[in-house]
């Protein structure tokens, strides 16, 4: 008996074989001792299984088992309610907070630029491209300019320079 025949026989015995194929398998079963032996083996196994599934009572009390289920149900319902509440907010309201934040930032920047337009900031620190080691600090309000050099005073570069205050 090959594998196809075995599976066909099984389908026949389980009542799953299409009607048109049944007569041929029935004839074969009647004539083939090996097929009948397999049929008997399955019948014995099936009778053993019928009513042979072990009962397995729950190892927890009704109250304890239910309390865990109830807790999960309530947790799920709370999460669902929160998600539903989020979904209920229209899209334009969800954009309200980031938009308002951006507006406040823009407003602040615009006020700051109005109050201190470029060139009128109370003090400025500059560094010249020609000498990246020299820094200039200008305090426009006090009218002070301070120039300092980042390299040592005894280097050749600083022969004529120190920190001079120009008023």
């Amino acid at each position: 008996m090959n594998n196809d025949q075995e599976l066909k026989l099984q389908a026949f015995l389980d009542g799953e074989l299409p009607a048109r194929e049944r007569p041929a398998v029935a004839d074969w079963l009647a004539a083939d001792a090996e097929a009948r032996a397999l049929q008997q083996e399955w019948a014995l196994t099936r009778s053993a299984l019928a009513g042979g599934e072990p009962p397995r009572p729950l190892p927890e009390s009704r109250e304890f088992y239910w309390s865990k289920i109830q807790r999960e149900i309530l947790r799920g319902e709370k999460a669902g309610a929160r998600a539903a509440a989020r979904r209920a907010v229209p899209w334009w309201r969800r954009l309200l907070v980031p938009t308002a934040g951006l507006a406040v930032l823009t407003l602040g920047l615009s006020v700051a630029l109005n109050y201190w337009p470029p060139g009128r900031q109370p003090h400025v620190v500059e560094t010249a491209l020609a000498d990246s080691g020299a820094f200039t600090y200008r305090d426009l309000k006090e009218g002070i300019t301070l120039v300092w050099l980042s390299y040592p005073a005894d280097s050749g570069l600083a022969d004529d320079a120190g920190a001079d205050i120009i008023e």
């Binding site: 053993a48 042979g52 599934e53 072990p54």
Partner: peptide, 21 residues
């Protein structure tokens, strides 16, 4: 080989269930 022995023969229900398990 095909089994022709009845595996449930002579077994109490509890024994049978234990074996199936």
């Amino acid at each position: 080989p095909v089994m022709t022995v009845n595996p449930t023969e002579g077994l109490e229900r509890a024994e049978l269930r234990e074996r199936i398990d």
